[in-house]
């Protein structure tokens, strides 16, 4: 690669929706960011600020209305398996087993391999996420955490140019969430794929990322600040939390989010985030063990 510092280049990315009355509603305005090869970058911001919109534009699922995206020297114009996407809801196909779900992707990126080889690749990645014993299980028999493990395996099994993670643990309870953060980190450490993750969990961002991009609220959300995360890799959760810098970095993120806590406009929220997560709960911060679990929105608990 000619410019390893600009493996992923996002330039003046903009998303606006036409509005029946008045000027178009600008959700994302002028989002410019370069991501180096092998870097893990998190995008953090309030619900509905447009961070998921940025990610889906990079995934090619949503067309930008301005600016451009270049990945590994090629412009991103449509969706494709060169970007491994992990959705917030695992998005597994319920009529297929875990193995079939992952194999479906492998078939697309390795069409020349035999069926057995494709299945072998899929099984390997399922094994890496700890589902080696559940290959032939259908998603409705898996817990929420296990389903997301399949989702992660599916993304990695594509051997993509980069990973796109859209609040991948947002629907899990905090224990499962920590477990899966470790799974993701271990898997990521094996070949250090360039990764972009959207999250609203401050601790998650600090634990996983090399850089954290803080987004301002909409309308016309943009990058407010960027935080370098200095913790050495490979990381251990305990060491990261005990790191002398940890509290200061965490405080910086929280101050930024609090400074941008004013309510985004009502219509903006509904346009941007179809899941419509309720906005920030002030009491959350003072609660017990808040230091470890502070997040901008209350967590939804997985039933399983």
């Amino acid at each position: 690669m000619n410019h390893p510092e600009k493996y992923l280049e996002i330039w003046k990315l903009q998303k606006a929706y036409p509005s029946p009355s008045g000027p178009p509603a600008v959700i994302v305005g002028d989002f410019t960011l370069n991501v180096a090869e092998g870097e893990f970058v998190s995008v953090i911001g309030h619900s509905g600020c447009g961070k998921s919109t940025v990610l889906s534009m990079i995934a090619g699922l949503n067309d930008p209305t301005g600016g451009g995206i270049v990945l590994a020297g090629r412009e991103v114009k449509e969706a494709g398996p060169d970007r491994g996407v992990v959705f917030q809801a695992p998005c597994l196909l319920p009529w297929m087993t875990a193995l079939q779900n992952v194999t479906l992707g492998v078939e697309q990126v390795a069409p020349h391999k035999s069926r057995a080889e494709q299945r072998g690749v899929a099984a390997h990645y399922l094994d890496l996420v700890g589902l080696g014993d559940s290959l032939d299980v259908h998603p409705n028999q898996l817990s929420g955490g296990m389903r997301q493990r399949v989702g992660i395996a599916r993304a990695f099994a594509l051997s993509p140019k980069m990973l796109l993670l859209d609040e991948p643990f947002g629907m899990l309870d905090s224990l499962t969430r920590m477990e899966l953060q470790q799974v993701l980190l271990d898997l990521w450490a094996t070949d250090r794929k360039t990764a972009l993750m959207v999250t609203h969990d401050v601790d998650e961002a600090l634990f996983l990322s090399d850089r954290i991009v803080m987004m301002t609220n909409g309308p016309a959300a943009r990058i407010g600040d960027i935080l370098e995360v200095p913790f050495a890799r490979p990381r251990d959760r305990h060491d990261v939390f005990e790191h002398p810098e940890y509290d200061r970095l965490r405080q910086r993120l929280i101050s930024f989010l609090e400074d941008h806590a004013q309510h985004p406009q009502a219509d903006d929220e509904s346009v941007d985030d179809p899941r419509n997560i309720p906005s920030r709960e002030p009491g959350d911060r003072e609660s017990f063990s808040s230091r470890r679990t502070f997040s901008v929105t209350p967590k939804s608990h997985d039933a399983a």
Partner: peptide, 20 residues
Amino acid sequence: DYLNVARVLNLSRMKTLLKI
């Protein structure tokens, strides 16, 4: 969600029909 999977994996029209 299912259609997004088809798009992200770049499934052909035929495969999208049969598998999704």
